[in-house]
């Protein structure tokens, strides 16, 4: 059964002459428990798909469904209990005046959980942060630690789907691997479905079983991870993308 289903999705910004079509006729499925990657250059519309799914971009048409339920224009709290998102830049996604405790506590409260103290400790342990981090403010944390807090916040409602919007692109290379491994472990542990956006093919090859390649708002090719590692692409743009990635990182196909 497919957990996420997109059919003929169009997303645009602006109206009339200013209208920019960010996503055009996107159709793809993410099976339950799978990890699906969206790859493409900046401005190809990959993040916009995530933002439309969670309701941050209201101007879209087509069909989107989560767990078989069709989505309307509004998102309910029940929806957010199922679908959560980790943002790209951990320096921008945490409120500068809220401590880790406040961030997680508020999230749990909004979703109506009880025993919040215990849950906060558990969440911090889940993402590899000790209880010492609980009362710190974002400015007292490093980039990797902030992203872990952001992941803990996304896990707090116990979702089934996690949307990852370039979760490591703002981090140091050494920290990237840590966060990616954490995400892989959490997926195993919580039986999560991932929809991951990235421009880094090595990251996607490491994390995802299937990938959609996007260019100028359109999905130009679907690739399985085997195709990707073997660099079997039909579309010239995809081929170009794969070659340029291996040029920068020759070990990408072996290490992944």
């Amino acid at each position: 059964m497919s957990e996420l289903h997109f059919k003929d999705l169009n997303v645009w910004f602006g109206e009339g002459a200013d209208r920019v079509d960010a996503v055009k006729h996107a159709t793809f499925d993410v099976p339950s428990g799978a990890s699906f990657g969206l790859v493409g250059e900046s401005g190809s519309g990959k993040s916009t798909i995530l933002r439309a799914l969670v309701g941050l971009v209201p101007t879209w048409s087509g069909k989107m469904s989560v767990g078989g339920k069709q989505l309307g224009p509004k998102r309910t709290r029940e929806f957010f209990k199922e679908v959560q998102m980790v943002f790209q830049d951990p320096y921008a996604s945490l409120h500068p005046r809220h401590s880790v405790d406040q961030v997680l506590g508020e999230t749990l409260k909004l979703h109506g959980f009880r025993g919040i103290d215990k849950r906060i400790e558990k969440l911090l342990a889940d993402v590899g942060l000790g209880p010492a981090f609980r009362f710190r403010y974002p400015h007292q944390l490093s980039g990797g630690q902030r992203q872990r807090v952001a992941i803990a916040r996304a896990l707090a409602p116990e979702p089934t789907v996690l949307l990852l919007d370039e979760p490591t692109s703002a981090l140091d290379v050494s920290v990237q691997a840590e966060v990616l491994n954490l995400l892989a472990d959490l997926r195993e542990e919580h039986k999560l479905t991932y929809l991951m956006v990235s421009h880094d093919l090595a990251v996607v090859a490491h994390m995802c079983e299937a990938t959609a390649v996007m260019q100028n708002g359109e999905i130009v090719e679907m690739l399985s991870v085997e195709d990707m590692r073997a660099m079997r692409a039909k579309n010239p743009y995809t081929q170009h993308l794969l070659e340029s990635a291996s040029g920068y990182n020759p070990s990408a196909e072996q290490s992944a």
Partner: peptide
């Protein structure tokens, strides 16, 4: 439009809470 406001919207927070708890302090 910052990510931390988007993030709290994704927890289903209503505008009243976002304004008083997240925007006012800043």
């Amino acid at each position: 439009n910052s990510d931390y406001i988007s993030a709290v919207k994704l927890q289903g927070a209503r505008p009243l809470r976002i304004i008083t708890k997240h925007i006012w302090p800043l």
